[in-house]
Amino acid sequence: TTVHIGNVTYHFDNPEEAVKWAKEMAEKLGLRIEIHGDTIRVE
């Protein structure tokens, strides 16, 4: 599972961890997340 924040990509072996981490980052940055299969974007 990959999480994209701007130009930076993070890789997670556990999809649930990826979603949890992306949600925390989105809250901190005042952004929202979009999930497309195994790709998560924070925008």
Rank of each mutant, 00 (worst) to 15 (best):
T1M: 15
T1Q: 05
T1P: 05
T1H: 06
T1K: 06
T1W: 13
T2P: 03
T2V: 11
T2S: 08
T2A: 07
T2I: 11
V3L: 03
V3R: 00
V3M: 01
V3I: 04
H4C: 12
H4W: 14
H4Q: 13
H4A: 08
I5R: 02
I5C: 07
I5H: 04
I5G: 01
I5Y: 06
G6L: 13
G6I: 06
G6F: 13
G6P: 01
G6Q: 08
N7K: 13
N7V: 09
N7D: 11
N7T: 10
V8H: 14
V8N: 13
V8C: 13
V8M: 14
V8I: 13
V8E: 12
V8Q: 14
T9F: 09
T9R: 10
T9C: 11
T9E: 10
T9V: 14
T9G: 05
Y10P: 00
Y10W: 07
Y10H: 05
Y10R: 09
Y10D: 00
H11K: 11
H11Y: 14
H11F: 14
F12V: 01
F12S: 00
F12W: 03
D13E: 12
D13N: 12
D13S: 12
D13V: 10
D13R: 08
D13G: 08
D13Y: 07
D13W: 09
N14G: 05
N14E: 08
N14S: 12
N14I: 08
P15G: 10
P15D: 06
P15Q: 14
P15C: 09
P15L: 15
P15I: 13
E16P: 04
E16N: 10
E17R: 07
E17P: 03
E17K: 08
E17G: 04
A18H: 00
A18R: 00
A18Y: 02
A18M: 03
A18P: 00
A18E: 00
V19A: 07
V19S: 05
V19M: 15
V19G: 04
V19F: 15
V19E: 06
V19W: 15
V19D: 03
K20R: 14
K20A: 13
K20F: 07
K20H: 07
W21A: 02
W21L: 02
A22V: 03
A22C: 04
A22D: 00
A22S: 04
K23W: 10
K23A: 08
K23M: 14
E24T: 10
E24I: 12
E24F: 15
E24N: 08
E24L: 13
E24P: 01
E24Y: 15
M25R: 04
M25E: 05
M25H: 04
M25A: 05
M25V: 12
A26Q: 03
A26P: 00
A26T: 03
E27F: 10
E27S: 07
E27I: 08
E27N: 09
E27Y: 08
E27R: 09
E27P: 02
E27K: 09
K28P: 04
K28H: 10
K28S: 10
L29G: 06
L29Y: 14
L29T: 05
L29P: 03
G30D: 07
G30K: 04
G30A: 05
L31C: 10
L31Y: 14
L31I: 05
L31Q: 07
R32H: 15
R32Q: 15
R32K: 15
R32A: 14
R32S: 15
I33N: 01
I33R: 00
I33T: 03
I33H: 03
E34F: 14
E34R: 13
E34L: 07
E34M: 08
E34P: 02
E34A: 11
E34Q: 10
I35D: 03
I35K: 04
I35H: 06
I35Y: 11
I35Q: 06
H36D: 14
H36A: 10
H36K: 12
H36I: 14
G37V: 03
G37M: 04
G37F: 04
G37L: 04
G37E: 06
G37A: 05
D38Y: 04
D38H: 12
D38I: 04
D38W: 03
D38F: 05
T39A: 07
T39I: 14
T39H: 12
T39V: 14
I40G: 01
I40Q: 01
I40M: 02
I40A: 01
I40H: 01
R41G: 03
V42D: 01
V42P: 02
V42G: 03
V42A: 04
E43G: 15
E43P: 05
E43C: 09
E43L: 15
